[in-house]
Each structure stands twice: as structure tokens, then as C-alpha cells.
């Protein structure tokens, strides 16, 4: 991990255009030494997983504020698993009602950061997940 910088893909699936949070996270991860690939708005699950594969990322971060997080996250997890990228954790931030957090973790999301999560907490968790993936790598 020390020798190689963590590679993180940040994307916004669905139609939601609120990208303030996604960009803040992208800046913060870059400042923390990560390689950040920002895929931008209205990315489909297929586009996200294709970029994750070609960029060989350690973590996928998505941001959703439109309320469509359960559907879009399950779709993304299915697409990831179909491409045998199970070892690439998916984290999610945005407007997420507390009742949905357990559901999302149950679906296989590695971490959920609802509105109000402290920025350094998010950065550290993403870096930790990236390190775990690197250690697990065959």
C-alpha cells in the first residue's frame, strides 16, 4: 500500500445531478494521496464497472441524493459480481435515510456515508478498504 497509491473511482449513477459531495470526496482523496478517477454524472452500472476494470481501481465510490439508492446500488453490485470484481469494495454516500443503511450493508455495500459524515472519516475508511484489497490481492 505504501509504495502504490490507492486508486479510487468516484461516480454518480442514475439521473441525480447533485455532485457537490462527490467532488468534495474526489478532492479530499486526491489531497490524501489517492489516484482519483472521476467518472461524472449519469454513469450507468456498465460504464462504472467497465471503468473500474480498465483503471484497475481499489475502491468504487458512488454518491446518490435522489432516493434511488437501493435500486441503483443493487444494480451496480450485480454488475460488479457478474464481472467477478467482488474484491473491489463499493462505498456509498449521499442522502440516505437511516432505515436504508442496514439494507445497503446487507446488499454488500462496504460502507455507507450518510449526509453529515465527517470528511476525514470517509477518507480514512476508503484508504483502509483500498489497503485491505491490496493485501488480499493474490
Amino acid at each position: 500500500m505504501n509504495a502504490v497509491r490507492a486508486r479510487v473511482l468516484i461516480a454518480k449513477p442514475g439521473l441525480d445531478g447533485h455532485d457537490r459531495g462527490a467532488k468534495i470526496i474526489a478532492f479530499a482523496l486526491r489531497d490524501a494521496g489517492c489516484e482519483v478517477i472521476y467518472l461524472g454524472l449519469r454513469s450507468t452500472a456498465a460504464e462504472i464497472i467497465s471503468a473500474a476494470t480498465s483503471e484497475d481501481v481499489d475502491v468504487i465510490g458512488i454518491s446518490l441524493l435522489s432516493g434511488a439508492h437501493l435500486f441503483l446500488t443493487s444494480e451496480l453490485i450485480e454488475e460488479r459480481d457478474r464481472h467477478s470484481l467482488q474484491r473491489v469494495p463499493i462505498v456509498l454516500g449521499g442522502i440516505i435515510p437511516p432505515r436504508d443503511i442496514e439494507v445497503l450493508l446487507g446488499l454488500g455495500v462496504a460502507a455507507v456515508f450518510p449526509a453529515g459524515t465527517n470528511l476525514p472519516v470517509i477518507v480514512q475508511r476508503v484508504i483502509d478498504l483500498a489497503s485491505e484489497r491490496r493485501i488480499d490481492a493474490p
Binding site: G14, S66, G67, A68, F71, E75
Partner: peptide, 8 residues
């Protein structure tokens, strides 16, 4: 549209 119909 389907995941987002009527949400926001």
C-alpha cells in the same frame, strides 16, 4: 426512468 419515477 424506472428507478427515479416520482421520487424527488
Amino acid at each position: 426512468a424506472l428507478p427515479e419515477v416520482g421520487r424527488v
